[in-house]
Design a protein around this nucleic acid. Structure first.
Lengths: 143, 143
DNA sequence: ACTCATTGTAAGTAATGGTATTACAATGAG
DNA sequence: CTCATTGTAATACCATTACTTACAATGAGT
């Protein structure tokens, strides 16, 4: 059980846009060939990133660019842009209300798990696109 | 996108076993009526918890009991018992190796995300079954 | 030894969600 | 006006989850 492609795809898309800004026109087809998924997936992702105010996309002429600096874009924003804001875990909605465990499980476990989800989001908030660009740069240097 | 029922179900099963120890025989049918899922799901879950050394199940006569004290059972163990040990996120396996982003994304993003997953597991390790039993007890008191 | 509720497990079904793909109208710079 | 590209809908395919039925194996109680 794990999260879908969406967030990693969005991250890679943004990294490519940042990396190739001014060098190549970053169309959905171009980005799709880096990620190796269908261009429609990229367009959908770009739409979500645009709605979140992270990129602007040139309809018609094509290409996307960042609205904010890489140091001002965090994984938390990216995650929020492409994933629904729902609980991390799926707790059975209709437990037995006659059972003392059943009638409290949602509140008790839900509380704990939402704290943990917030921790995860905080971790995401501490990672910026610039961090990743640097890591990639370093990885390229040591080839 | 979220994790499946499995972990919350396992938690509820363990809580019921602890709560009703010596009062009711905790058969799969009994547990299933608290969680409100099919008894077969409970048996499968109990099998995983047994394999993880958290419970023992009386085949034939029926019923389950804890092998360890509630204060010694953490969410991390429960999570590990019912979920595969895989990455939190699914990073595209075949990005374009000709792209500097594509050929490094797995390492760069994977590293960051595995740190975050470990944080999550640490959070899980700090929550015991006893904590949850207490929370339920308190919730019941204030009804 | 027999009984019987229960576990362990397999097999099949249904529902859900993610990804891929095709198709096409709308866009907008040149 | 042209044309590559975006935005979006519709569809298909596949994997996973959860549900359900079925039945042999188990083991305490009689």
């Amino acid at each position: 059980m794990q999260f879908s492609f969406r967030m990693p795809v969005a991250v890679q898309v943004l990294l490519c846009i940042a990396k190739f800004d001014g060098v190549f026109k970053t169309t959905s087809t171009f980005l799709a060939s880096s990620v190796n998924v269908n261009p429609v997936i990229i367009r959908k992702t770009l739409g979500q990133l645009k709605a979140a105010g992270l990129v602007e996309v040139a309809a018609g002429v094509g290409g996307a660019k960042l609205v904010k600096e890489p140091c001002d874009i965090t994984l938390k924003e990216i995650f929020g842009a492409v994933e629904d804001d729902e609980d991390l875990f799926h707790i059975q909605e209709h437990p037995n209300p006659q059972c003392p465990v059943g009638r409290n499980i949602h509140k008790v476990l839900g509380d704990k798990l939402s704290v943990i989800k917030n921790h995860m989001l905080e971790d995401f908030a501490n990672i910026t696109l610039e961090d990743l660009l640097e890591d990639i740069h370093n990885a390229e240097q040591s080839r």
